[in-house]
Design a protein around this nucleic acid. Structure first.
Length: 485
RNA sequence: GGCUCCAUGGUCAAGCGGUUAAGACGUCGCCCUCUCAAGGCGAAAUCAGGGGUUCGAUUCCCCUUGGAGCUACCA
């Protein structure tokens, strides 16, 4: 049997990370089994559809490296792959169910339904559709349908017994039929609901394995009833636990949680995000934690899936990102970092290559880069207290001495290379019976204005160049003098 | 409320009847060091509670508690 899987999002906005993970696992499972990965757009709820969302799904999936073999924009033998483009094929299947008694037309208006629902809840009763229209004779029902009266088609759930299915992850799941409602299969607008469309399309598209969120777990027994009514074989189901933002809430755009696109825009590396997402709710069973897409395809295993929800932990993502960045070549890093350097340093003539070397292992997420390097463009205002550092054995008095000593040495330096700077400043410390740090710390503070910087005094002095370095030293001396008076 | 599902450190998690209960992130400490990173070493921290079953439960069963999902002409 050739494996065919599908990712079937609704175009209601951006691709959230839970959706991305579902797509990833679905893709991995198909590829690992030499199968076919399909994209299907579930747009039967026309009211919720968001403009441009379909294109965003195509784009996100491509950016994520999850290329589908069949789909709306790539074609395939089982199209169309957009449900609204399949609208006419659902009703005949529904009518087949009406004929066999597994479904029936219903003419109750939404208003009437709402009244009965309200009445029931007012009395503290459970509301379920009362099968009111099931009592209509087939002839009358048919006549009213043909007369143009609005109708829906409902699934006729048995009053007794249990519906069940076997989930590859959760095992046997069953629900008593009398707790199940007669759901609408075909809406008044002629389009199918998810409840119906997923069954019809998965069957028609030859889907062998369905991976989807656990929100469908409790209604899957109902879908199985449909498969039975048709005499079709149901696919293997693998329900996936949700990705949470904390113990009680799912990740959601409403609370400002980032989408995949957002993460990329913030300067997360694609492969780091994929690697992190793969491990959220899945474990390879050994201690590996770095995976390329190909390695994931090989390693993925249903047994490693977790049944419990997983909380999206940004700190670990940041760590992964930092790791992926560290493993880049310097050239790759420089290429990625340049726009972020430009954001703070454009036109300043800074040696980006040297800066890249310094920033390479210090970059966690690229959007933090501009703030880290901006001091090279402009000396930030700083408080004199940062000249004091017990471990370096410096305070503002020593700092003033150090800067006064360093000033002429730096000015006289013909070669402003890091080696020359280091040699000169260390020699200066030695000559004056000072510790290296007692020179280096004040110099670094004076030229950077920051308590911590990516790189030491000599590296920063080199990046700044002689004129700017001297200007900042003078500023530091002036500040310290002013404070002494 | 009803139905379904879930439950190992702060987080991701290994474990699948007998273990000193892995590993990673994060946290803390030490080393290195011209700051910060990086790197090296080390530490603290988990089986939700109660009943069973068993010679023996993190592991199997039940209950409680906590959480999630479904309960729409949304998916």
């Amino acid at each position: 049997m050739t494996v065919r899987t599908r990712f079937a999002p609704s175009p209601t906005g951006y691709l959230h990370l839970g959706g991305l993970r579902t797509a990833l696992y679905t893709y991995l499972f198909a590829k690992q089994n030499g199968g076919t990965f399909i994209l299907r757009i579930e747009d039967t709820d026309q009211e919720r559809e968001v403009e441009g969302a379909v294109e965003l799904i195509y784009q996100s999936l491509r950016q994520a490296g999850l290329m589908y073999d069949e789909g709306p924009d790539v074609g395939g033998d089982f199209g169309p792959y957009i449900q609204t483009q399949r609208r006419d094929l659902y009703l005949p299947y529904a009518m087949q169910l009406v004929q066999s008694g597994a479904a029936y037309p219903c003419f109750c208006t939404k208003e009437a339904l709402q009244e009965r629902r309200d009445a029931a809840t007012a009395k503290g009763e459970q509301w379920k559709y009362d099968k009111h229209c099931l009592t209509l004779s087939k002839e009358e029902a048919l006549r009213r349908m043909q007369s143009g009266e609005p109708f829906v088609i409902r699934q006729n759930i048995p009053l007794t017994g249990v519906a069940s299915f076997e989930d590859a992850l959760y095992g046997h799941v069953e629900a008593p039929c009398d707790t199940l409602d007669d759901n609408v299969l075909i809406k008044q607008d002629g389009l199918p609901t998810y409840n119906f469309a997923n069954v019809i399309d998965d069957h028609l598209m030859g889907i062998t394995h369905v991976m989807r969120g656990t929100e469908y777990l409790s209604s899957t027994p109902k879908y199985n009833l449909l498969y039975e009514a048709f005499g079709w074989q149901a696919p293997v189901y693998i329900h996936l636990s949700p990705v949470m933002k904390d113990a009680t809430r799912k990740l959601s755009k409403r609370y400002g949680d980032p989408s995949f696109e957002d993460l990329l825009a913030q300067g997360y590396v694609r492969d780091a995000v994929i690697n992190f997402i793969a491990l959220l709710g899945w474990s390879p069973g050994d201690e590996r934690e770095f995976f390329t897409m190909d390695e994931l395809v090989k390693a993925f295993d249903l047994k490693g899936l977790s049944k419990a929800p997983a909380i999206f932990n940004t700190e670990k993502l940041v760590w992964f990102n930092h790791e992926y960045i560290s493993r880049m070549s310097l050239d790759e890093y420089l290429k990625m970092a340049t726009p972020w350097f430009d954001a703070a340093l454009a036109g300043k003539g800074i040696d980006y290559r040297r800066l890249a070397e310094l920033m390479h292992t210090r970059t966690e997420v690229f959007d933090r880069v501009p703030d880290m390097v901006r001091f090279l463009s402009e000396l930030p205002p700083y408080d004199l207290s940062i000249y004091t550092h017990p471990k370096m054995k410096t305070d503002s008095a020593i700092a003033l001495t150090a800067l006064r000593l360093a000033r002429p040495v730096l000015e006289a330096l013909p070669d402003f290379s890091e080696d020359a700077l280091k040699e000169a400043l260390m020699a200066l410390a030695a000559q004056n019976g000072m510790k290296t740090g007692q020179i280096m710390w004040p110099v670094r503070i004076a030229i950077s204005g920051l308590a911590s910087t990516p790189g030491g005094a000599t590296e920063i002095a080199y990046l700044l160049g002689k004129p700017e370095t001297l200007r900042r030293i003078d500023l530091g001396i002036a500040k310290l003098q002013a404070a002494q008076l």
